[in-house]
């Protein structure tokens, strides 16, 4: 069922489309830049707690916008063609990998820009970096499935937010706690609970996505 070759081909197709019309990645990047700048103009100075929370909220909105496209951009004809050459699992895995790559890159660029604009209070940059990358990864695993669900419904941009925000909260709370520990420069062993919980949540999400996607892909 799951074939590495097909996943690779599907992933390459998504990356090529992205590379050829760069507008979607650039669009999201510009979205993040302008949001950060608006926040800077409205806040000017912020304490580390708000710094951290603000970053994750910006990332939350940016990722919902970025991942929402992953199923909507496919035309109906292209979907039909994909059904004939691949199984459901291959499609969802390739989408998750693609979104994860996109989101990790986006998160890294965003944190760089964010720390340039706002003064960076992080005391443990390595762990904060891990938190950011993990955040990009986990956002994309949850949102890929939600965007698959939302793409089946007509009015899907609002729906995407309604459906995803409540189930993103556990993840967001763990991420904020984990990254707050990194900002305070606490001993790394303190954050291990959160780290395992985030990874576990990712494993659960990917497993359920694999089980559930076959039920909706042909709807």
């Amino acid at each position: 069922m799951i074939s590495v070759k097909i996943i690779k081909a599907l992933l390459l197709k998504d990356l090529l489309i992205e590379w050829r019309n760069k507008y979607s990645f650039n669009g999201i990047l510009l979205y993040v830049f302008s949001t950060v700048f608006i926040c800077y103009l409205s806040f000017k100075q912020i304490n580390p707690v708000v710094w951290n929370a603000l970053f994750w909220i910006i990332m939350l909105f940016a990722s919902v916008n970025a991942v929402a496209k992953s199923f909507m951009q496919e035309t109906k004809g292209r979907f039909l063609y994909m059904y004939t050459i691949s199984s459901a699992q291959n499609i969802i895995i390739s989408k998750i990998i693609y979104n994860a790559l996109l989101m990790m890159l986006l998160s890294l660029i965003s944190i760089l820009f964010y720390s340039v604009v706002f003064k960076n209070p992080v005391q443990d940059p390595l762990f904060y970096g891990i938190a950011v990358i993990l955040g990009g990864l986990s956002f994309s695993t949850i949102l890929t499935m939600v965007s698959a669900i939302a793409s089946k419904v007509n009015n899907n941009t609002t729906l995407m937010a309604i459906l995803s925000f409540p189930i993103m909260v556990p993840l967001l709370m763990l991420l904020i706690k984990f990254s707050k520990n990194a900002i305070d420069g606490l001993d790394r062993s303190v954050s291990m609970n959160e780290l395992t919980a985030i990874l576990l949540l990712n494993v659960i999400t990917i497993a359920i996505s694999l089980l559930l996607f076959p039920y909706i892909w042909r709807e």
Binding site: L163, I167, I208, S209, Y215, I216
Partner: peptide, 11 residues
């Protein structure tokens, strides 16, 4: 049904 099964473990 898919959404509810997806959201349940996270809840």
């Amino acid at each position: 049904a898919v959404y509810s099964v997806f959201a349940f473990p996270i809840m």
